[in-house]
Design a binder for these strands. Structure first.
Ligand code: NAD
Ligand code: NAD
Lengths: 208, 208
DNA sequence: ATCATATTGTTCCATTTTTCACAATAACAA
DNA sequence: TTGTTATTGTGAAAAATGGAACAATATGAT
């Protein structure tokens, strides 16, 4: 099994680059075109493809449309992915209003909050009381949740949604969560992203 | 020079864990405590420290306060980091309202936008016209920017702030930017983060 | 039909990153 | 004081990742 997260991220980048090339009218692509488009190397492009059994044509490159089909299938983009947001505060509502996920086949179908003032059943993405999350997750077979509650509530909210059947969580709270067995947690830690950037800015500044 | 991004991210995690331990009253810590706290291994903790010349006491572990001092110095946290936000839309204003960066010594000092309706010089974090960005960056010696403008405007905005002296950009637009020489760009691509999560949820589901 | 060429697919090699293992040694106990 | 023990610091081994090289081969030219 592939455990290399970077490899999957590259597949996403290839996919995005292919859509751009397709929009420009290209029909086929070579490994080095793709490499350029994602700032990688041609051998890595070919190796990534070969890992997933994707093959092109000697001297002919890859057919963009069929390549996209294969990548999309690997990335689970051949079906609409329904996602919920838990915590309809600043970050949560920014995400719910964002339309960019849709073109990626990702649809935020509902938000959940404990604050009654945040509830709004008639908005474009309805915001429902947290009590209803369990039933909603089960009824709509939701597997992915975005967690955007205050730090202090993050573990508790995780426990609830894991117990309700959520299989993957994208967590914005800057702390390590413990999910149940069988629930994957990916963290988006903006504090750490900034710290990291600051570190590298500092060292490149010093070493020149 | 250290180029290992993950290593620096681990330093941030150690630092955060140390503050938690300190708040619980701990004064010293062993490598395996820290490993537990960040879900890592004890040897990696010690190796990470040794890379930066951080040493503890045989049989005595590490003194939390002096360890924190050293980590904070490495991570540039011994001085306030001033950051600007370019694009005061959904994501940008969520970030400007967020108070969590302050405890990390990161201060968002201004936002910039081209839309006159977004300008507000008297808000807690003032939002200024983009025209003023160059002068502001120079006057206040800003080195770090968060980029939260629409995709279509991202490259242009990058060009402007790079030319004004920005050295590091945290980019939320889901596309690859070209910075000038000497400007580091880190991407937060939420589409790809979600795609990645979905991929790993799918494969763990299939292989069980 | 044959040859030259361009590009893939894969093997092999280099580098990076992580883990293991253990000598060195400080703290503590007897 | 002497011995025992716990824990660091690091060198060596292993694993993972990335890149270079090249044989295989389809395509197109002559
Ligand atoms: N806003 C940012 O820019 C930003 C940046 C980095 C990290 N974060 C992190 O993202 C998380 C959310 O931040 P925010 O600024 O959106 O916070 P926020 O306070 O604006 O919103 C949190 C929302 O969660 C709701 N909530 C509280 N407990 C809940 C529970 N148990 N279940 C469901 N909903 C609950 C609240 O009612 C509120 O609407 C925090 O962990 C924060 O540290 C935010
Ligand atoms: N909102 C989200 O949840 C979300 C999620 C993922 C990615 N993103 C990305 O983040 C970026 C911002 O998204 P958003 O939802 O906040 O958009 P938004 O439209 O709400 O806000 C963008 C802001 O940028 C301003 N702007 C436009 N051109 C500008 C320029 N040249 N200089 C300065 N300001 C300019 C606009 O006036 C607007 O206020 C986009 O690239 C988007 O793809 C957003």
């Amino acid at each position: 099994m592939i455990t290399n997260k970077n490899c999957i991220i590259r597949l996403s980048r290839y996919k995005n680059a292919l859509y751009r090339l397709q929009a420009l009218g290209f029909v086929k692509v070579f490994s080095d075109n793709l490499a350029d488009a994602v700032s990688g190397t041609a051998s890595q492009v070919r190796k990534d493809f070969s890992i997933f059994g994707i093959s092109g044509n000697k001297k002919g490159g890859y057919q963009i449309d069929s390549l996209l089909e294969k990548l999309n299938s690997i990335l689970g983009k051949d079906q609409l992915q329904k996602v919920i947001v838990v915590g309809a505060g600043h970050i949560g509502s920014a995400l719910m209003r964002y339309r960019g996920f849709e073109k990626e086949g990702i649809k935020i179908v509902a938000g959940f909050d404990i604050d009654p003032a945040k509830i709004n059943r008639s908005s474009f993405v309805p915001v429902l009381p947290l009590d209803e999350a369990k039933a909603f997750i089960k009824t709509h077979s939701i597997r992915i949740a975005i967690l955007a509650v205050p730090d202090i509530a993050a573990q508790q909210a995780t426990d609830i949604i894991c117990a309700s059947g959520i299989k993957g969580i994208l967590n914005f709270a800057p702390l390590g969560l413990k999910g149940t067995e069988g629930c994957i947690i990916n963290n988006v830690n903006l504090e750490i992203e900034l710290e990291n950037l600051i570190y590298f800015v500092n060292v490149t500044e010093k070493t020149r």
